[in-house]
Computed example of a mutant assay.
Amino acid sequence: MGNITETKVYMLDTNVFRYKSNPRAHKSYKKATKRFWRNVLQEFRNGESVLYIPKEVIRELEVQSYTLSEKENQRIAQLLELIEETVPDLATPEIEHQIRKITAYVRSEYKSDINAARDMEYGSVSDARILLAAWQYDCIFVTANIKDFMLYPLLFPQNESRLFDLLSENYVIIDPTVYENIHRDPVFAGMLQDLHNMLER
């Protein structure tokens, strides 16, 4: 094995900042988040990773800042200083809607197959914006709220680790057979092709 290490590009969700800064967060959530930041900052210092956030996360943190203490806002501001790039808005309302439609279809047809123990939702418009930013910038997406982002691993080749669950500290893996069944589904394939067509316009 050579010495060249591929740089990881992490896209961080809003809760990655909130659980680190909130003194009232559940103890296990706070510990997991602290471990993530400790590990990713070590990678960052070693030149092994970079940190991105979507513009939508900046908006969410700004809105939430009015309900937070000054200390929490200061902690979030310190974390934001580590971010390499803020990704601009990439989605139109039609693209956001298409992402939510695809997720809703997968949820209706394959929810129990993907993971019977894990809930799956189609997410908000804000979630669709965040998902698209992570996908278009080819990122590892980190979130504590994976139920709204279960479409994300399906947008990449099956063997790629792309959705990191902040709380379990593991990548979300979709069973290869389930992955193949979903991608062979003509409805899913057609909806995904429509999404690609929208992005190419």
Rank of each mutant, 00 (worst) to 15 (best):
E180Y: 13
N15W: 09
E180P: 05
Q98T: 12
I146E: 03
A32H: 06
N145S: 12
A117N: 10
T14I: 11
Y122V: 00
I102E: 09
K30G: 04
V57K: 03
N197T: 13
F156C: 01
F149S: 01
D113E: 15
K34M: 08
V16F: 01
I95V: 15
D13E: 06
A134R: 01
V63Q: 06
A91L: 10
I53G: 02
Y105H: 07
V50F: 00
F141H: 03
D13Y: 06
T67Y: 12
A189Y: 11
E169M: 13
I130Y: 06
D148C: 06
T86M: 06
Y66S: 10
I130L: 09
A189T: 09
N46F: 06
I114P: 11
G47S: 09
D89F: 14
P88M: 03
I102Q: 08
R201S: 05
S112F: 13
A77P: 00
E96W: 01
D119E: 14
R18W: 03
G123S: 12
N145Y: 13
Y137N: 13
T86D: 03
E43G: 06
L163Y: 11
I83D: 05
Q78V: 14
P54I: 07
T143D: 02
D89S: 15
A144R: 05
S161P: 02
Y52L: 13
T143Y: 04
P23A: 11
F149W: 08
T103P: 01
I76T: 07
W135R: 03
Q42Y: 03
E85C: 05
G190H: 11
K101I: 07
T5A: 10
E6M: 14
N170E: 14
K31F: 08
E60I: 07
T5M: 15
E60N: 04
P186N: 07
E56N: 06
A117G: 05
M120W: 12
Q136R: 15
T103Q: 13
D119K: 13
M1P: 01
V16C: 12
L51M: 11
I174W: 10
P23R: 08
L199P: 05
L12E: 05
L192W: 13
S108P: 01
L82V: 12
Q193L: 15
M11R: 00
V9T: 13
A32S: 14
M191Q: 15
R38T: 11
T143E: 04
W37D: 10
E94F: 10
L61H: 04
F44P: 00
T67L: 09
S21I: 02
L132I: 08
R184T: 04
V125E: 14
Y29C: 06
D89C: 07
K147H: 12
N115E: 11
L132A: 04
E200T: 06
L151R: 02
A117R: 05
N22E: 12
N159C: 06
Y152L: 07
L192N: 14
E48G: 01
D119W: 09
I95R: 06
L80V: 07
T33P: 00
E169F: 03
S21D: 03
N3W: 14
G123H: 11
R45S: 10
I76Q: 04
Q74I: 02
M120T: 09
D113A: 10
I130W: 10
L155A: 02
T103K: 10
